[in-house]
Design a binder for these strands. Structure first.
Ligand SMILES: [Mn+2]
Ligand SMILES: [Mn+2]
Ligand SMILES: [Zn+2]
Ligand SMILES: [Zn+2]
Lengths: 144, 144
DNA sequence: GGTATGTTTGTAATCATTACAATTATGTTT
DNA sequence: AAACATAATTGTAATGATTACAAACATACC
C-alpha cells in the first residue's frame, strides 16, 4: 500500500498509541478508501497483506482511534458501524438502493453549536437517506 | 391502559393492518410513553397485560408500522433500534451520561428538502449527542 | 362448517460486536 | 544486547439484537 507511513506514525504517537504494523495499515486503508467501510470490509482488505490479522484487532484499533478522536463512527445503516477518517465535520447520505454512503457538505447552522436547549452538544450526526444520483440515472435508463 | 383504542383501530385499518390486541397495545404504549423505547422495553412493559406476547410479535408489529410510515426508527445509540411515534419530523439528542433520548425541535433548513446534490432525499435524521440539561445540573451539584 | 389469508408464537439461526486469557511485540532500562 | 515492564495482538467463546421459519391460532368470507 503506497501511503505516507511516517505521517500516520506521528498521528498515533502524538495520541499515545504505539504505531504497530496493524494500526498503520488500518489507518492507511481508511485514508485511501474513503467509502466509510465496516470492520468486516477492513478485515477482508487487510488479510492479504497481514494474513495473521485478527478481526478483534480491527475492532480494538478502530475503538482506540475513535477514543482519540482520530476517526469517527457512523451509524446511518442501523445494522453495523461504519468508520470515517475525514478531518472536518460533515453529514452523510445513504442510498437505499446501492447502499453507498456519500459525504454531504452542507452549511448546517448547528455544526458549530456547543449548546442547545440547555444540553451540552459534543457531537452532531446528520443522516440523509434516499436514492443517489447514480441510481436515479440508471433507474431512468432501465425504464427506456 | 387508558387510551384511545378506536383511534388506533382506525389508524391500523386505513393502512391495511388488522387491529389485533397486540398491535393496539404496542401503539398505545408508544403513544403514552414517548421515551423512544427499544423492542425489549416494549416487550417487558406489555408482558404484564399480555402474558403470552412474543418478542417476535413486537418486532413484526414494529416493522409493519415502519413500513406503513406510522412510526419511525431511530439509530442514534448505534447498538439498538429505538422507535418513535410522533407525527411531525424532528431531531434527537442522546445524553451520553443517562442515555435519555430527547426530542429536538430545530428549524432545520433541510427537513423540507426533497433533493440534495442530485440525490433524492426520502428521510433525514439529525442526531445530537452530549450531556443533557439534567445531568449537567446534577453533575454541578455533585461537585459542591 | 370449510377454506383462505393474515397473525402470533416459540425456537433456532444469524450477524455484529465484545470479553477473555494466552501469546507476542514494543519501548525502556540496565 | 539482554532483561524487563507494559501494551498490543490473536483465537475462541460469549453476548445481544434481530430475523428466519414453521406450527398454531384467529378472523372473515363462502
Ligand atoms: Mn464521511
Ligand atoms: Mn422523537
Ligand atoms: Zn445508489
Ligand atoms: Zn442525561
Amino acid at each position: 500500500m503506497i501511503t505516507n507511513i511516517p505521517h500516520f506514525k506521528k498521528v498515533l504517537l502524538t495520541q499515545g498509541l504505539k504505531p504497530t504494523y496493524q494500526r498503520l495499515e488500518i489507518l492507511a486503508y481508511l485514508e485511501k478508501y474513503k467509502i466509510h467501510p465496516t470492520a468486516e470490509m477492513i478485515y477482508h482488505a487487510l488479510i492479504r497483506d497481514i494474513p495473521t490479522i485478527s478481526k478483534t484487532t480491527i475492532y480494538n484499533t478502530l475503538n482506540a482511534l475513535i477514543r482519540k478522536g482520530i476517526i469517527h463512527e457512523i451509524t446511518i445503516t442501523g445494522t453495523e458501524t461504519r468508520y470515517d477518517y475525514h478531518g472536518i465535520p460533515h453529514h452523510h447520505f445513504l442510498c437505499n438502493q446501492c447502499g453507498k454512503i456519500i459525504d454531504i457538505d452542507v452549511e448546517c447552522p448547528y455544526l458549530a453549536k456547543k449548546e442547545l436547549g440547555g444540553h451540552r452538544i459534543e457531537e452532531l450526526q446528520g443522516y440523509f437517506k434516499g436514492i443517489c444520483k447514480e441510481c436515479l440515472r440508471s433507474g431512468h435508463k432501465a425504464k427506456v
